[in-house]
Nucleic acid binder design. Sequence first.
DNA 1: ACCACCGTATTATTTGTATAATACAGCCAA
DNA 2: TTGGCTGTATTATACAAATAATACGGTGGT
Lengths: 123, 123
Amino acid sequence: MISFEQFKIEDGYPIYTQIIQYIKRGIVAGRIRNQDEVPSRRVLSSLIGVNPNTVQKAYRMLEEENIIESRSGAISYVTVDASKIASIRSQLLEGDLGAVVKAMKQMGISKEEALRLMAKLWD
Amino acid sequence: MISFEQFKIEDGYPIYTQIIQYIKRGIVAGRIRNQDEVPSRRVLSSLIGVNPNTVQKAYRMLEEENIIESRSGAISYVTVDASKIASIRSQLLEGDLGAVVKAMKQMGISKEEALRLMAKLWD
DNA sequence: ACCACCGTATTATTTGTATAATACAGCCAA
DNA sequence: TTGGCTGTATTATACAAATAATACGGTGGT
């Protein structure tokens, strides 16, 4: 069963996208593995304090990306292999890191300064 | 007069926040300076193809942060000094870069790999 | 077989984002 | 001074995100 202990809702982004991100990042990090069980819609919604429909929307979109599988009546579970994990990883990196690189360039920050800032922020 | 030639609407974020970001990043980069004139609500809205109310919302929020000043009937203009520019800069960096550092840590990426990925993405 | 839990579906309501159509008063250059 | 542009305000509509309250049928352990 996937753990959502580290999950915290932040504002600025739709909750369903935060659930999707949390699971994708967990898969990339190896915390979430193939065939792991996913909390039911009702359980997760009451755990993180949102509406079951919000969780359902996140799960449905994950299913459309073939990252989880659901069948009526039964628990849903993760379905990933090595190549899918790699593609999720590059998808997240290009999205997150790419946007920041673009933003810093627009701010007139040099490559060297960007690297120094990131190294400093990392600790 | 501030130029919006480089401005492009992207989806995923509210348009009014994109306008705010564009101006803040321009200020940090030095492209937008103190006392620069801001396009009128109507002019900018027709220039970038959005509703005047959307521009008004962005400008009103910038005014609440004391980044622009408006008076009824007259053109609005930028009001920043060195310390405000510095605070905008760290505000943007902490937000954008900080979020990515957090995300990459959640993905189990090492500091060294993160720096290497950013350097690669920069070019 | 029962029954609690599961996924799924539907309808309604609220809030935020964005558009649309006006309206009014202040500023300022011609 | 006049007329066009300015900021500001109001009302209405549309869509997405999120909540709320149900309802139905499938699954699986006891």
